[in-house]
């Protein structure tokens, strides 16, 4: 029985209050994905639109310098957080330079 591992009535805060802010991060939603967005750091113009439009805060801003093959220097990059990305494809669609590919998830 699953019930046996769950807390007893007196181990739950009164009224079912949740005391740990933002603990939904313990419940990844990455397995919802059927398509995976892949950001091409070479093509990416660092406009942050994917970060803005993502409904799941699943675009991470990585503050590390990046140098493209053509020699362009960036102070930061954006990456998809696959733990939470549900694969909606908004970022793919909204990327102004088509730097995000959308590929089918395969096991």
């Amino acid at each position: 029985m699953q019930g046996k591992q769950l807390p007893k009535w007196n181990e739950i805060p009164p009224g079912g209050a949740i005391l740990e802010p933002g603990n939904s991060v313990k419940r990844p939603t990455g397995d919802w994905r059927t398509f995976r967005p892949i950001i091409d750091k070479e093509k990416c113009v660092r406009c942050l639109l994917c970060w803005v439009y993502c409904p799941d805060a699943a675009i991470k801003i990585i503050d590390e310098p990046y140098r493209t093959a053509s020699g362009k220097e960036w102070k930061f990059s954006v990456e998809v957080d696959y733990t939470f990305c549900k694969g909606c494809g908004i970022c793919v669609e909204e990327c102004p330079v088509k730097a995000i590919e959308f590929v089918e998830e395969v096991k």
């Binding site: 019930g3 739950i12 009224g15 079912g16 209050a17 949740i18 005391l19 802010p21």
Partner: peptide, 21 residues
């Protein structure tokens, strides 16, 4: 804190039992 969340069958009963006590 989060007050008034949604409690599914695994949780609702225990939370209501607190009121009994």
């Amino acid at each position: 804190i989060t007050l008034g969340p949604i409690a599914n069958p695994d949780w609702y009963y225990e939370i209501k039992y607190q009121q009994v006590v």
